Simulated assay, not measured.
Amino acid sequence: MQLSKLSGSILSGLHCFLIAADHMSFTRAAETLCLTQSAVSHKIKNLEEILDVQLFIRQHRKLVLTDEGQRLKQVLASNFGDIIHEIRDLKSAELSGDLTISVPPTFAQTWLVPRLASFIDKYPNVRIHLRTRNDLVDFQTESYDCAIYFGNGEYPNLAVDKLLEERMFPVCSHEYAIKYQLYHQPENLIHCLLLHDAAPWARAGRNDEWQFWAQHFKVELPDNGCTFDRADLAIKAATTGMGVAMARQSFVAEQLASSRLVSPFDMTVNSAHSYYVVCRKDMQTSPKINAFKNWLFSEIDS
């Protein structure tokens, strides 16, 4: 019998035959395919009728491949293997190539980079290009796939997903807290040197974080300070006993746990800003960008 094309029933029968030939058992093939034993037997009998070829010799509690069945098994094993390999290549091709991301410097150093190896392990064909900056990306003229922003979430013409909220509180070394009698006495901040992240978010003022915290708790601040263009530098300066820095919770967990930093008073406030993942709206269905976003959220939930 000549076959003009491979119909769905023939392809299904060929797959069923290959599984049965691998196991040399209709019962085990049925378990693999989540079918009944009679359904497997029917599919193979139907295939034999279509091909006009006997594929199995059915003996008591035993199957034996005919010569024709053996030839068909070899051809199918090779070709089905090629198909599976090609499908895997197609799927991995969706998650391969370059992924260029803009990230705030301290968030990259303290939160993202320590976790990034797990993304690479999961998607080894994606080449990450991480660039740190505090200002916003111009997606029309700059070749970024996505960005992480710390801000208010209002980014017109972009796809925006809220990633992580932040809490803020002052930190310093234990020695500095003792020297200036800071424990449970925030009024003594007036005598301290404040360490400022001069660019906590795009277009922020150099002391905006400290002012936001102080207004919330009605604390008077000194008119002084040392500014840094990265939050991690202000935090590092605090660990050396230079002064008091305004910390974000995600930045200082390790230093607090190791007592390199202390929070001298229990006065924590939710930041007015959060972390967001953004990209162009026409790129929000990109497999690479979605894989990166889903991985970020899984890291936060873990």
Rank of each mutant, 00 (worst) to 15 (best):
D229C: 07
R260V: 07
A159K: 01
S92T: 06
P222N: 06
R115H: 15
F107S: 02
L6N: 06
K62W: 01
W111V: 00
Y183Q: 09
N224F: 13
L195T: 02
D232V: 07
A147K: 01
G8F: 14
L189K: 02
D161G: 03
N270S: 12
A237G: 11
A238L: 08
K91T: 03
D89I: 15
N207Y: 07
L99G: 11
L136C: 14
R28M: 15
M283K: 03
G13C: 01
R61M: 05
C192K: 00
Q255S: 02
L55N: 15
S92N: 08
N79T: 04
H273D: 06
A214F: 03
L51R: 04
C172G: 06
N224C: 13
L182G: 01
G205H: 15
W210H: 12
C146R: 04
C172Q: 05
T240Y: 11
Y176G: 08
S78L: 13
N224G: 11
H174P: 02
H174G: 05
N152K: 07
S298Q: 00
I57E: 13
W210G: 05
N79E: 14
M246W: 11
H85P: 02
V171E: 01
R133S: 10
A93S: 13
C34Y: 07
D301L: 15
D301R: 07
S271F: 12
Q59P: 04
I148K: 14
K236R: 15
V40Q: 03
G69Q: 12
L296V: 01
Y176W: 13
T227S: 12
W201V: 13
L193W: 04
H191P: 04
S41C: 00
A202Y: 14
F26M: 09
